[in-house]
Design a protein around this nucleic acid. Structure first.
Lengths: 143, 143
DNA sequence: CGGGTTTTCCCATAGTTATCCACAATCCCC
DNA sequence: GGGGATTGTGGATAACTATGGGAAAACCCG
């Protein structure tokens, strides 16, 4: 289980350190892809495998299913850790998530999220404002 | 599994480099053909075999099935890699997919797609709007 | 046949990427 | 608190790859 929030720097070679606690759980094999709200998702290989399989089984003949599978699959990249526990962020993902220098890495149970610090703060303050309303809605979901 | 997005240039001899990660999986034998949404599909020989079989079994009586099978079967060509991992794009396929200079090569699980960069960007923004609520879709897939 | 054109194969080079190493700061345990 | 191990960050070096030409072979077409 991934929990907690960490900040790191991306260097000019697009390398990003992953928190040691997460490294063990990822076991050298992970997949990074486009996430929601302009962040990136990092999945353990196994989690990704089942997601990708489901995506691949969507019907090729339906335009919207095709498009959806394309977005998720083409956005994904296997990541390798160097022997210091860093991963490489491909350009197109770096752009997608507006990653500059200061990065927030956060654990969200079964996945890891990668945010630019500024985006992260923005998102947080937005959520904090709305948190009252959200709580109301969550109640409907039985939380 | 083919995943990820890469950009390459076609040179004036219509040669196109295939990402090293994909080369290994293709193992020197591949088939290129017309794809859906004005891109090209590139299949490993084995995948192509089973797909071609399915296409041949589509009911001859239905006009659209007939058209679809024709599109893919008549467009197909075996591709050879030169010793630097490049393939040759035949003229009629190059025209079909509007390939100019900057090309996007993307992995979509069991096939590779080849897009002109401009077409790809257009398609992406269109899909992002349409698919909009990715989260909802993910829920349907049980993720 | 022969001239010109296209295709195929091979190599050069510049740029990029991966791997390895250094150092300083931090953490942790005794 | 002290000392050893761990970790974050930045470079350096070596390996690889993208791209562009050049030469040889094949292919036309008259």
């Amino acid at each position: 289980m991934f929990i907690g929030e960490y900040t790191y720097l991306i260097d000019e070679k697009k390398r990003l350190a992953v928190p040691p606690k997460f490294r063990q759980l990822l076991k050298k094999k992970a997949v990074i892809t486009r996430g929601l709200d302009q962040c990136l998702f990092l999945y353990p290989a196994k989690e990704w495998g089942s997601l990708a399989k489901k995506l691949s089984q969507l019907p090729l003949s339906q335009a919207d299913a095709r498009g959806f599978a394309r977005l998720m699959l083409t956005g994904a990249m296997e990541v390798n850790f160097d022997n210091l526990g860093r991963i490489l962020i491909p350009d197109y993902l770096k752009n997608y998530a507006f990653l500059k220098k200061k990065i927030v890495i956060a654990g969200v149970y079964n996945r890891i999220e990668i945010w630019d610090e500024i985006q992260w703060r923005k998102y947080q303050t937005k959520i904090e404002k709305e948190v009252g309303d959200i709580a109301e809605r969550l109640k409907e979901l039985g939380v």
